[in-house]
Simulated assay, not measured.
Amino acid sequence: MTGVLTKPEASKSPKLDDDVRIKDILKTLPRDVFEKRPIKAWTTVFIDIALAAIGYLGLAIAPWYLLPVLWVFQGTVLTGWFVLGHDAGHRSFSNRKWVNDLVGHVMFLPLIYPFHGWRIQHNYHHKHTNKLEVDNAWDPYRPEAYQNLSALERGIYTAVRGRFWWVGSIGHWLVQHFNWNNFSGKQREQVRFSALFVIVAACIGFPLLISTTGIWGFVKFWLMPWMVYHFWMSTFTLVHHTLPEIQFQPAETWNEAQAQLCGTVHCSYPTWVEVLCHDINVHLPHHISSAIPWYNLRRAHRALKEHWGSYTIEREFSWSLMKQITDRCHLYDPNQCYRSFSEVRDR
């Protein structure tokens, strides 16, 4: 089933027929893209550990003028660690739940990221992708809601929707994943365990790092790679679902197939980023089914392009792309997808 592409309105993404469902798209994917390959998965874990060890060694012995390059390398490697934990969170790393939980906690540990808190919230994002006021990833405010914010809240929102987008994931990390009181039942216990796991690790690791290498060692070995990770995480997650033509839909008009296929951006990054970050930006198939392991995403993407290419949205990463997004994609507008802050202020 391919449906009929309707001509989009000005500045809006293509629209699927209303009768197209996720199951129709899934039927066009090869069955083997869902197969887990343990040797591939574990080999990648060990390679990533080796790359991180090389990065830390480099930071320890390199002259000061090479540190920025090594920070970018190490932060990108640790983003790859996060992607492996990301697969574990979707249960696409292993068939065994305890293995997924173990890998997720270990891969997230250097970033002091609570695994279960992230896993539960991220799966919620997949269930409600681009659903206005429900999705928890870069959900835009309506103009009236923005104007009713306090001055501090408005300032923070304006910054992370503008030129300071690259710190947006820090707020998401801090606010959403450590408060287990936002959860209930078994989920609450899981989130508490993950939060306390990284808190205890930080309480032991940070003083040890500072006592042996000083404050500068803390900055050099942890803080700067961590900031690079958040640059990538903020950038990736913003671009995954945000362009001037991609609209967040209210719950009453939201359509799952439309949101997952036409509301997801395939963005190409430099090859070294794609390799170190394990194809996390081959994002369309991941939203059609989060059960697809990272190493099968490109094959699944080719199948989606073959059967649904008229509906897919692709971009190449550039500073002009980020300028386009951060200049325009600020506040929800039902007619033109987004309105900028300046448009709202001028009215």
Rank of each mutant, 00 (worst) to 15 (best):
K127E: 15
I61V: 15
I120M: 02
M107W: 03
F46M: 05
G117C: 00
A88T: 13
G89V: 08
R21D: 03
N123L: 15
H86F: 14
D17F: 00
P114D: 00
L16I: 12
L111H: 03
V33Y: 04
D87S: 13
K27L: 08
G75W: 05
G55L: 08
D101F: 04
W64L: 15
M107R: 07
A53R: 04
L132G: 09
T43C: 10
D19E: 12
G58R: 11
M107A: 12
F115C: 00
R21N: 08
L78G: 09
L109S: 10
R37S: 11
D87N: 15
V99E: 08
A50K: 03
L57D: 11
G75M: 04
L67N: 14
A52K: 04
V106W: 08
Q74A: 11
V45A: 03
K131N: 14
E133P: 01
V106R: 01
V83P: 09
R91M: 13
P114I: 00
F73V: 01
H90F: 11
A88H: 11
V103P: 03
D101Y: 07
R96N: 10
K97Y: 06
V45M: 10
A52S: 12
K36E: 10
K131G: 01
R21W: 01
I120L: 12
M107E: 06
D87E: 15
A53P: 05
A53I: 11
E133I: 05
I112T: 11
V103A: 04
D48H: 14
D19C: 00
Q121C: 10
N100Q: 03
Y56A: 08
D87I: 09
M107Y: 05
G58K: 11
K131T: 15
V69M: 11
A41I: 02
K131P: 01
F73R: 02
F115L: 00
I39N: 02
F34V: 07
K127L: 15
H128D: 14
L66Y: 14
N123S: 14
N130C: 15
F93W: 02
W42I: 02
L111P: 06
L78Y: 13
P114E: 01
L102Q: 03
R31I: 06
F108H: 14
L59W: 10
R37N: 14
T44I: 10
H125L: 14
V83L: 08
A60T: 14
L29V: 07
P110L: 05
L57C: 12
V45N: 05
F108V: 04
V20D: 00
K23I: 12
Y65N: 10
D24L: 00
G104R: 04
V69W: 09
G104T: 06
L84I: 15
L29W: 00
Y113K: 02
S94P: 01
V20C: 04
K36W: 07
R91C: 09
H126L: 14
D87V: 09
V33Q: 07
P30S: 05
D87M: 13
D48C: 10
K27Y: 03
I54K: 04
G104N: 04
W98E: 09
K36F: 05
R96Q: 07
K40N: 06
P68V: 09
A41P: 00
L29F: 04
V45Y: 05
L29M: 02
W118T: 08
K23A: 14
W118K: 07
T79R: 11
V45S: 03
W71P: 07
Y113V: 04
L26P: 02
I54H: 01
T79C: 13
D48Q: 14
T28G: 08
N123G: 13
T43D: 06
